[in-house]
C-alpha cells in the first residue's frame, strides 16, 4: 500500500513537471526586436529568459537573438525569423534524446550539441518544403516563405 501511494505521488510529480514545462535553454543574446511565444503569450526576449519545449522564437525586421540549449546546442537567428521548438528531450542517462524544430522563415545558424553527437538522427529541422537532418555540427539555414 505504501508503495502504491509512493508511486502515485511520483506519477503526480512527474506529471506536474511536464505540465509546468521544463527549461530547455536560455536566451543569451538579443539585439533589436525579439520575442518568445510561450503558450500563446508573447514575451519580449531578454538575456536570461528561459526557453521551454513548444516555444516559438521570433525576431523582428531588425532583430537578432542567440539561444543556448541544455545539451550545448547553440542557435542564433537573424532578422525576421521564426522557429518553433517542437520537441526537445535531453535525458542521456535514460538514452532519451531528440531535438525537433520547425522554421517558417528567416536565417538561422546552428552549432549542434550533445544530442547530435550521441544520436545524430535525432536532430531535425523542418522547413516549409524540406527536412534537414543534422549529422554534424555547424550549418546555416535560410528560409524565404
Amino acid at each position: 500500500m505504501k508503495r502504491f501511494i509512493l508511486s502515485g505521488i511520483l506519477v503526480f510529480v512527474a506529471a506536474s513537471v511536464a505540465w509546468a514545462g521544463e527549461t530547455i535553454g536560455f536566451v543569451k543574446t538579443v539585439s533589436g526586436e525579439a520575442s518568445i511565444i510561450d503558450s500563446g503569450k508573447t514575451i519580449s526576449a531578454r538575456v536570461g529568459l528561459p526557453i521551454r519545449m513548444g516555444n516559438i522564437l521570433r525576431t523582428g525586421p531588425k532583430g537578432s537573438m542567440g539561444v543556448t540549449f541544455k545539451d550545448n546546442t547553440v542557435m542564433s537567428f537573424g532578422p525576421d525569423t521564426e522557429l518553433t521548438v517542437d520537441e526537445y528531450v535531453y535525458a542521456p542517462g535514460a538514452g532519451k534524446l531528440s531535438f525537433g524544430a520547425s522554421m517558417s522563415r528567416g536565417s538561422l545558424q546552428v552549432i549542434s550539441g550533445v544530442i547530435a553527437k550521441l544520436k545524430p538522427q535525432a536532430v531535425n529541422i523542418k522547413t516549409p518544403s524540406a527536412m534537414i537532418g543534422c549529422r554534424g555540427t555547424h550549418f546555416l539555414v535560410k528560409v524565404v516563405p
Binding site: I132, R135, G136, T137
Partner: peptide, 29 residues
C-alpha cells in the same frame, strides 16, 4: 535559391554532415 542550407566547418575545425530530404529526394552535404 530562395531557401537553402549551407554546411560550415565545425568550431573544432572538422566538417560534419547535413542530410536534406525534400520532394527532390535525399541529399547529403
Amino acid at each position: 535559391p530562395k531557401s537553402y542550407v549551407v554546411l560550415m566547418d565545425s568550431p573544432d575545425g572538422t566538417t560534419g554532415k547535413v542530410a536534406v530530404s525534400s520532394a527532390q529526394g535525399n541529399v547529403l552535404l
